[in-house]
């Protein structure tokens, strides 16, 4: 793995090279492309110098306006919105599991023999992951109107790909022994899934769910910016009205919730895995 020559005193006949000519040409090519991409991005980015000189003052102004925090805002607006955010994250995660579990068995090579079915499941996962949850939220707000329902659905649809792909990989890694034993004993498909695969993939399942729930708590906090319910609505209102003391309190609340959810997930993970 290193570039150090293997022989202590390389002779002319022994000249070690790590890469073949094709490989080094490809590597040079990639480096050139990356540098070109960065230069291209730098040349077209618009930086308005006046705004940049102003930035430290603006940042100070931001914090000055946030302080003191408007605590009266907490019981009336933030707390209900916070509960809604947590509910959105939980329901979205559960809904995603319900939809992703059958699909991930469909995507696993050792469970599903039909390549077409596997391909369909993979396609659904990729489409779910390629669309950001905010974009899913825009779509669901258009269909169901603003509110928590759109939030739950967008969290769920964004999570299907994540949960499904990772859980499908866990199923593929399952040991075939118990499954073959059950099949040999004449067990039905359902029994094979529940008694053969499930005990093996259960730890992976809980760890994936916890990971996604943790991500979903963060995401559901911003869904309100496009009208999909939760604490983001309070944030959006505070910022639109330029009530930075309220916005600061919302940010502090989100920080606290994210910190607690990270603490909870790490504790639970240590317990069950």
């Amino acid at each position: 793995m290193s570039d150090i020559p293997l022989s202590a005193a390389p002779s002319a006949a022994q000249h070690w090279k790590r890469h073949s000519p094709l490989q080094s040409a490809l590597r040079t090519g990639i480096t050139v492309v990356i540098v070109a991409a960065v230069v291209w991005s730098l040349r077209t980015i618009e930086i308005i110098p006046e705004f940049l000189y102003d930035a430290p003052a603006q940042t100070m102004d931001l914090f000055a306006r946030m302080w003191p925090l408007d605590w009266a805002f907490f019981p009336t607006d933030i707390f209900p919105a916070l509960i809604e955010t947590i509910n959105i994250a939980a329901l979205g995660t559960v809904l995603a599991i319900v939809m992703a579990l059958p699909l991930s068995f469909l995507a696993a090579r050792n469970v599903t023999r039909s390549p077409v079915a596997r391909w369909i499941a993979q396609f659904l996962f990729v489409s779910s992951r390629s669309v950001n949850s905010l974009i899913w939220a825009l779509l669901f707000v258009a269909i169901f109107g603003p509110g928590a329902l759109a939030g739950v659905l967008s969290i769920a649809f964004r999570s299907i790909g994540f949960v499904g792909r990772l859980f499908g990989e866990a199923v593929e890694d399952a040991h075939p022994g118990p499954v073959e034993a059950l099949t040999a004993a004449g067990a039905g498909t359902m029994s094979v899934l529940v008694k053969g695969y499930w005990p093996q993939v259960q730890p992976a399942f809980w760890s994936i769910v916890l990971l996604r729930w943790d991500i979903n708590v963060r995401e559901s906090a911003v869904l309100g910016l496009v009208g999909a319910g939760g604490i983001g609505v309070a944030l959006d209102a505070a910022i639109s009205n330029l009530y930075w003391d309220q916005a600061g309190l919302v940010l502090l609340t989100i920080f606290g919730v994210v910190w607690i959810s990270e603490f909870v997930t790490s504790r639970v993970r240590a317990r069950i895995i």
Binding site: I45, F51, L52, D54, Q58, E219, A221, V222, L225, L235
Partner: peptide, 19 residues
Amino acid sequence: FHPLIVAILFVKAVGFGVL
């Protein structure tokens, strides 16, 4: 913080736009 929230703060600090 979600990138979107950080973006709100940076929009206030350096103005609208790519930066």
